[in-house]
Nucleic acid binder design. Structure first.
Lengths: 220, 220
DNA sequence: TAGATTGTTAATCGATTAACAATC
DNA sequence: TAGATTGTTAATCGATTAACAATC
């Protein structure tokens, strides 16, 4: 069964399609054409059709796409129709923010436990999730069939913990630490580097300022 | 003064270069060739040279790049050699996580205030930053020359607050709400959509599983 | 059936990589 | 000077957009 490799660009657009389709369902819209969706999402209709056709023909000529059907299909593609067991390592503000975000659960991401090294935090319960000692990490992962670990700890500890996670058989790391983790090929790492995001923002603010200056000088 | 438009891909790589150069400085490395850096960062040397040459010739033939100099130059390009005044709107866990992250300050991002609508939070002080009522938003922005607003509030309130921010003269929004904000062309929006990041992770975990299954069937 | 809109192929555009002359 | 490595041009690769035949 030959599986065409899907480009990263396509995959990263899928969640956004999913979000818009969810909104359409809430609005009670039953069907939508690539053209209408294109206008809403500010992407080309061509791109929408190309992206979707990587996974199959979900539409119908002359009709468009059935919103609910497409929504469900994208959920399947993203794997959010299945349950994913998750742990959070690092029970600081960021870890707690994730633990408190109930929407993840609606997408099948079930937070089974939190871990920290701070004795003051260990034993606390957040939204029904207990904070445990990192000493119990390996045992807990196996016992609870944990697939994903969110890493919300300082970068100094990150690679050490990542190694332990890999050895314990974790499938994926959602990495918030400001460092690039080195893991085997069959372990997925998704980085959320907030400081890099903020720097990109800074660049754009500055280049916007420069532009305004130039225009101010030349036109008026 | 003709400014060549720099592609988004290049800009999004700059913070990563910056991070690696910072690590090299810590290690006491004085100079580095595009080839050595390429090996560390797992990108091609060609890409490094191309990326940097968008902004000027920072290297020297036969020598490579001076680490400290390049580090400082990238800081200038990103605008993190300047101070940026920032506010956080939404003093929940995520807002507090950002407020507590002292590294932002080292890059010139100074958090001047936090805002919330919850009376229980208003008046609290986090790391010297007071939580204020959103009623005071417009006054505070003008009084404190705020350029950037981090939006860590639920999506239902996001566009209303975004409109107020734009009217109050904010230059950039760091948007953590799960919605696309509509703002004028001269206002920058940088999105951090955590749920979309988690869905991408989910996709990759699932396609990894599929692959393992296929290989399991065909090879052994 | 006629009109609408998809699925898909072809054309274009942009980004990455390779190659090498310039130069420290 | 000879060796190393950049800056930059050319070649390749991939992603986006346009076009249109297929078909509901």
């Amino acid at each position: 069964m030959e599986r065409k490799e899907i480009s990263k660009a396509v995959i990263s657009r899928l969640p956004r399609y999913y979000r818009y389709l969810g909104e359409l369902i809430e609005e009670g819209v039953e069907r939508i054409s690539s053209n209408e969706l294109s206008a809403r999402m500010k992407v080309t209709a061509s791109q929408i059709r190309q992206d979707l056709n990587n996974f199959g023909g979900f539409g119908q000529q002359g009709y468009g796409y059935n919103v609910k059907y497409l929504y469900a299909e994208i959920a399947k593609i993203l794997g959010i129709d299945q349950q994913h067991n998750l742990i959070i390592i690092g029970a600081g503000n960021l870890g707690q923010a994730i633990a408190n975000y109930t929407n993840f659960e609606r997408r099948g991401f079930v937070i089974k436990g939190m871990f920290d090294i701070n004795p003051k935090l260990i034993g606390l319960v957040i939204r029904g999730i207990e904070i445990r000692s990192v000493d119990d990490l390996e045992f807990f992962i196996k016992e609870n069939e944990i697939q994903i670990a969110a890493l919300t700890i300082p970068k100094t500890k990150a690679s050490e913990i990542a190694d332990r996670l890999v050895k314990a058989g974790i499938k994926a790391i959602w990495n918030f630490a400001h460092t690039d983790l080195v893991v085997p090929d069959d372990v997925v790492v998704e980085n959320v580097h907030l400081s890099e995001s903020l720097m990109r923002l800074s660049y754009r603010v500055c280049s916007m300022n420069d532009q305004a200056e130039i225009e101010g000088k030349t036109s008026k």
